[in-house]
């Protein structure tokens, strides 16, 4: 978990990623572009077009100012979640045998194709998401989602998570320190499991009570379910240009897909 978190900005709400050209674009445009890309790419089925989409996402990486190494490592981490499926698919999909493993396991041509399709789709989409949306700091993302008319509850959930995840982490760290101060050393035994279970349970109880106190304090300041968002989003000429270019690129992907499917 720690290595996943370590890529997060040191201060939640602070800017993420370097000063790439993408940084100046309006967050709403970036969120919409990433969503459109995801919809189009999941609809593609011919492998060359999918590969082109993945290359396009990769080509956007330098524009984002994200460090290539850690970003690609994060993408590979996502692959870990679908790895089992990718390995099993060739052996479970019926079709023409392409490869026979010792022990009688048969990998089919259709299965291999399906696995490649899913791997390309997932990686292209996740990479584009990281480039366009992952470079937004969480607060700006929240503002963009609110302005895109997403349910306010979801936006508040995101903004409160950003605000309080550090508080919770600090509380967890202090309690773990207090446990160590009382000579606790985790091991594979009942005492450890019970103690860690109680730690998690107590964190949940405290978080719940804290949330009630926060709500009470917000009500004292006149909260009625609306948080006024102070943002300075503006959709300018650069954003329009980006939108048009991005839409053209997506159009090209669709046209190639249609042409290839007809030819087949």
């Amino acid at each position: 978990m720690a290595h996943l978190l370590s890529l997060a900005p040191p201060h939640p709400g602070g800017a993420t990623g370097g000063p790439g050209p993408i940084h100046g674009l309006d967050p709403r445009g970036r969120v919409l572009a990433a969503a459109a890309f995801a919809v189009v790419v999941t609809g593609l089925s011919s492998l060359p077009v999918l590969a082109l989409a993945a290359v396009a996402a990769l080509a956007m990486l330098p524009l984002s100012g994200l460090p290539p190494g850690p970003t690609l490592r994060r993408m590979v981490m996502m692959d870990g979640f679908i790895l089992v499926m990718l390995v099993l698919l060739p052996f479970t999909t019926p079709g023409t045998p392409a490869l026979i493993l010792p022990g009688g396991l048969v990998a089919t041509r259709e299965g291999l194709r399906l696995a490649a399709e899913i791997a390309l789709t997932a990686n292209a989409v996740i990479l584009m998401l990281m480039v366009l949306v992952g470079t937004l700091d969480p607060v700006r993302l929240g503002h963009a989602l609110a302005r895109l008319r997403l349910p306010l509850r979801l936006v508040h959930l995101l903004l409160f998570t950003v605000r309080y995840i550090e508080v919770l982490r600090a509380e967890y760290d202090r309690t773990r320190q207090a446990m160590r101060a009382r000579a606790f050393r985790p091991g594979s035994n009942r005492h450890t499991w019970v103690s860690l279970g109680q730690l998690v349970g107590m964190m949940l109880v405290r978080a719940l009570e804290r949330s009630e106190r926060i709500l009470q304090a917000m009500k004292c300041r006149g909260f009625t379910g609306q948080i006024p968002l102070l943002d300075d989003l503006s959709f300018g000429a650069g954003d329009r240009l980006f939108g048009v270019l991005f839409a053209l690129a997506l159009g090209c992907l669709i046209a190639m897909e249609v042409a290839l499917v007809r030819a087949a």
């Binding site: 309690t175 207090a178 101060a181 009382r182 103690s195």
Partner: peptide
């Protein structure tokens, strides 16, 4: 032994 500033940091069992 260390007694922490905030008792809630220390007490975590039911």
């Amino acid at each position: 032994g260390l007694v922490f500033q905030d008792p809630d940091d220390q007490l975590f069992c039911p």
